[in-house]
Design a protein around this nucleic acid. Structure first.
Lengths: 234, 234
DNA sequence: TAGTGGTCTAGACCACTCA
DNA sequence: GAGTGGTCTAGACCACTAT
């Protein structure tokens, strides 16, 4: 407790010391920790510096802060982790392979019920439906099955025979929010043909919906080749 | 461009306006945006307030900031999303089900090669190996296969017949970092028996390793019942 | 070397919420 | 009502890096 910090006092220093106190149980789970003014006095810095350090820990789920109630170490910390939403080409290249791309199909079609529900659309909407295959060193890497709102600006000039919808949208349709789901599924006949795997093989799938304010931009299902792993750090 | 903000000027206001300018292409991909002092003057606030707004956008991958080079809208934004690492009991209860738990097996065992590699351990280590099943409304929900460093303090007093390793470790071993992997796998005989699904069914798996500084705490594989989805928002 | 973001300070006021 | 975190300010100095 009475261990003074050595060296310069930055918010990183304070954050590290706070982490240590949490890990070493000097600040006990469920208990309140000293308030910002006390810590500022202890560390010999401004309150804003303490605030900067603790705010980030609260965002990570390692502290709980409430006005008047003070700051506590949660009994059941719900840790948060971040991961990067990959641009598929970068993902492939980051694995040391060369990326290539084939459009499989493209058409304006009525939106099926499942997508309609995901995107909260009225019935009888028509979206641009594109399916494509991403390859790593010539081997099937990821199947992209995408529905795009035809109202997206510039869409008519996009050439999805050359640029994948994934990449085009990232560059041309900045968005405000969306949802992501991960799950496992079994390869159907089409996927088994694309990936050269048996029917029923376990495949990793990511479903994503994307919005620009109230406007649904796109819904996509990315189905990865057998054995694919998504990795992140905490 | 010349659209003044109305209402109070907070960092959230500025962040929202910056997001709008990115989305509406007033700040073009690849281009530099005005520097902090200019924006502070434009919005009539302190530079620190602008900094607070833009720093967070940079952390989300929506801006790139470098000293001297200024702030740019990236050509290929790599969006980052956060997800919560669930405490399994909370995950189950959040789905409106009641959680129960069964320990399947517990023993001190030599660490197999795969785990040894993940945790960067010397050969011939022995860890506590616990396997358990989490149930939702009595149905198998998630299989927990965990290796725990016997040096974790307090481990000898943990009773994994009553409390799951998942929950005990969250409460008793604050950690500093780790890695996470998601993938799909096919149900082997054991999993098919536990989940009552055919062998070969596609299962969603999360592998996690956990460290306290240089000390490996635990490696766990969570295998979820068929159909499980992990969800997050962006 | 000069321009830009990164951070700290000391003080102030506000917003929320517990008692 | 009062205690705590949330935020803003105006100014300052520093760290990095493009030129």
């Amino acid at each position: 407790m009475a261990k003074p910090l050595s060296g310069p006092v930055t918010w990183q220093t304070i954050q590290a010391e706070a982490l240590r106190r949490i890990r070493d149980r000097e600040w006990k789970p469920g208990a309140q920790i000293p308030h910002e003014a006390q810590l500022a006095a202890e560390f010999g810095c401004a309150r804003a510096t303490v605030n900067r350090a603790l705010r980030e820990l609260a965002e990570l789920g390692l502290l709980e802060r409430r006005r008047k109630a003070g700051t506590r170490v949660p009994l059941n910390p719900v840790r948060r982790a971040t991961f990067q939403i990959p641009i598929i080409r970068h993902d492939v290249e980051g694995r040391g392979a060369s990326h290539s791309y084939q459009r499989l199909q493209q058409a304006i079609e009525p939106v099926p019920a499942s997508i309609q529900g995901q995107l909260d659309l009225p019935p009888d909407c028509k979206f641009l439906h594109v399916t494509a295959l991403h390859l790593a060193d010539g081997a099937a890497f990821c199947h992209e099955d995408r529905w795009i709102n035809p109202a997206v600006p510039g869409l008519e000039s996009a050439d999805f025979s050359k640029v994948s919808p994934n990449e085009w949208l990232v560059q041309n349709a900045a968005f405000s929010g969306g949802g992501i789901e991960f799950f496992a599924t079994e390869a159907d006949a089409a996927m088994s043909a694309l990936f050269g795997c048996p029917q029923g093989a376990a495949l990793f799938v990511m479903d994503r919906t994307t919005w620009a304010g109230p406007l649904a931009i796109t819904a996509v299902r990315l189905t990865y080749a057998p054995g694919h792993r998504m990795t992140t750090a905490i």
